[in-house]
């Protein structure tokens, strides 16, 4: 897999460059690993894939939304907000935690729910 790891504050600039270069946002995936949430953004161009990875603090995970660059990312970001408690700043279409009707708050990252941020 073609994966590069970057600091979280680099996401927006990377997304803008990637879009300008003609890449499509393929998927966004979150994974809770210990006390971190690992974010994986995958882009596709001419059947080639590249992914950027960002590590967030699991207790208060926060990241810039890429919806200004890739508007359709709102689906992925709202899903990750509800399941992992990641707060996306400047999210264009924000369901504010009602995207999924789930009984448990941030079930895939319980430490975010304890923090009360989301």
């Amino acid at each position: 897999m073609n994966i590069e790891t970057h600091p979280a504050d680099a996401l927006l600039a990377l997304a803008q460059d990637t879009k300008a270069d003609g890449w499509r946002l393929g998927q966004v995936c979150a994974t809770t690993i210990g006390d971190s949430v690992e974010m994986l953004y995958t882009f596709e161009k001419n059947n080639e894939l590249k992914s950027y990875k960002f590590m967030l603090n699991a207790e208060a995970p926060e990241l810039q939304s890429v919806t200004a660059t890739y508007p359709y990312a709102f689906i992925y970001e709202n899903e990750i907000h509800d399941l992992f408690g990641v707060k996306f700043k400047n999210l264009a279409v924000d369901y504010e935690g009602t995207f999924f009707r789930i009984a448990e708050k941030t079930p895939w990252n319980p430490s975010a729910a304890k923090g009360g941020e989301n």
Binding site: Q27, C29, T31, Y72, I75
Partner: peptide, 22 residues
């Protein structure tokens, strides 16, 4: 994503209907 154990750490499926809602 796995860590060498019998249980994977993560499975993620991004389905086409997700992508077509916008």
């Amino acid at each position: 994503k796995g860590s060498g154990e019998k249980f994977l750490e993560r499975v993620r499926v991004r389905t086409p209907s997700n992508a077509n809602v916008p």
